[in-house]
Amino acid sequence: MSTSLTQKLTATAASPASAGRGRGAGRRTDPGTIALGSRRARPAYVALAPYFLLFAIFSAIPIGFTMFLAFTDWRGIGDWNLVGLTNFGYLLEDPLFWKALSNTLILWVMTTIPCLTLATLVALGLNSAVRFSTVYRVAYLVPNITSLVAMGILFSSIFSSNFGIVNALLNSVGLESVRWLQSEWGIKVAISTLSAWSFVGYNAMIILAGLQSVEKQVYEAAQLDGAGPVRTFFSITVPMLRPIIMFITIMSTIGSLQSFTEAQVMTSSQGGGASSAGGVGNSGLTLVLYFYSVAFQENRYGYGATIAWGVMVVVILFTIINWVATRERSR
């Protein structure tokens, strides 16, 4: 299942002699693959075409153009000058880029850990087959399908300094108010709370699916061996869920590295430019928010594209780390 359909098709199309015999020939090389004659494969390509057409227009071509733009000083309209590697030099020395990178990584940790912990608890709860479990499943998934922008506005009210619910709760138990959206850690807490909240339900559903695929007999065997619920959870459930947890971790890593909306909605930039984006001290400035501000607010499309390259390098690095980690585990 690891190789994609296209790879299979190209692999078989490359050896028409064996493929010409039909299924049997193909099966001998790879039992999972059904070989298609080159003529017979054509309809499959046609079936795939819409996706690749859309992918080319909305992804591949823009990605290529972004790569090109990184070498220019384009301001979004009119002519551009090729500036070679100048933008990349700026990027390495840009304190805001590094700030945005560290913010993004901190937010990733602050979002993923509470989110996965909560999601596991929710999934365990849902799995214990209480009444109305469908209602709960829907309820937990609702935050995930609610518009992030709308939720961002709501959360900035919840976390507002003087009149927010969070501060009202703090005050009611005798604690001092916190200026959440005007302090370095406050902004991060607010943003990660929003992202974690909107993804708990989604992750819980996936974990729930994983939990339900664990064979009952395994649990029964554990019970016979005298394992308690805690022991069962750590020795049976967690190891059985490992692939699911890896999947969720990879998905949230990619999601977090691309995080934008939460920070954009919850922090306002007062000067208008990228320097003041992401709130006080740029504490909520994520990588994607940074390149959005540079390109679309400051009209520096060339440099914005360079930052996008930086984001891509980081995403690739993390993908490699994840990939290596998954491979180690599955061996």
Partner: peptide
Amino acid sequence: DGIVNGPYYAELSLVEAS
């Protein structure tokens, strides 16, 4: 101007917030 004046606003918000 909008690019260059950003840091002044950013620093002023640091003065008042922290």
